[in-house]
């Protein structure tokens, strides 16, 4: 694959990757957000695949495939099941529609988009020394990874629904994995395996906790979680 095509493909994948993160902040319906998350997982796998192809490292391609399956397939499936369980509610009628939507985010959508822009700028400023160290097309895309990390963290802070917070966490994690691929074309395989396994387990735990929260609090609005405090 020639150098030019490789660079364009890489930039395309990173572009889609960053766009998905912004869309996660933009849309309120959880069903849509989960689908965008799946797209982002696919973009991440694409980045890995392009890098693997360019550097002729077949191990990387295998890792890309694994990442794709996990982040585009398994995790979104889990989130959709959690949503459906909430939605079905086991009764003849659907549970109130607010479960599926991020009705009142902590920071309204317009403000959060502005904050996302600022975070992207901060990411670019922070990444300058990283790029300067080894200016290859891959490292030049590093700021994208960092900005997705910051946007993920902001989504984690700004979302009231439990599942929306899980999505935020997964966006944060995608960002880190992307940074890893772009910076040094992936961490050593056993570490990558461990990390993915840990992320899967974390989502599973959160899945179980969401179910327990729905049983205890009757909903997944995180504002109910205020009993443990120093007041």
């Amino acid at each position: 694959m020639s150098h030019g095509v490789y660079a364009q493909l890489l930039d395309l994948a990173c572009g889609v990757f960053l766009l998905c993160a912004v869309v996660v902040l933009w849309r309120r319906e959880l069903a849509v957000v989960v689908r965008v998350l799946a797209v982002q997982g696919a973009a991440l796998a694409a980045i890995a695949a392009v890098l693997g192809g360019h550097e002729r490292r077949w191990g990387l391609l295998v890792v890309a495939a694994g990442v794709g399956v996990l982040r585009a397939g398994v995790l979104p499936y889990l989130l959709r099941r959690a949503l459906d369980v909430g939605a079905v509610g086991g009764g003849p009628y659907r549970e109130d529609v607010s479960e599926g939507r991020e009705t009142r985010p902590v920071v309204n959508v317009a403000a959060s988009l502005v904050v996302a822009a600022l975070l992207v700028l901060l990411a670019y400023a922070v990444a300058r020394p990283l790029v300067a160290l080894d200016p290859t097309p891959a490292t030049r895309a590093l700021p994208v990874g960092l900005s997705v990390v910051l946007i993920g963290f902001f989504a984690l802070v700004a979302r009231r629904r439990a599942l929306a917070q899980v999505v935020g966490f997964l966006v944060l994690d995608n960002g880190i994995t992307a940074t890893a691929f772009l910076a040094a074309s992936g961490v050593p395989p056993i570490v990558e395996l461990g990390v993915s396994f840990d992320v899967l387990l974390a989502v599973l735990v959160l899945y179980v906790l969401t179910a327990r929260m729905r049983a205890a609090f009757g909903g997944t609005d995180l504002d109910d979680l205020r009993e443990l405090s120093d007041r």
Binding site: A162, F169, L209, A216, L228
Partner: peptide, 10 residues
């Protein structure tokens, strides 16, 4: 405990 667990994990 659910609240504590959720905050802890997140």
């Amino acid at each position: 405990s659910v609240e504590a667990a959720w905050k802890y994990v997140v």
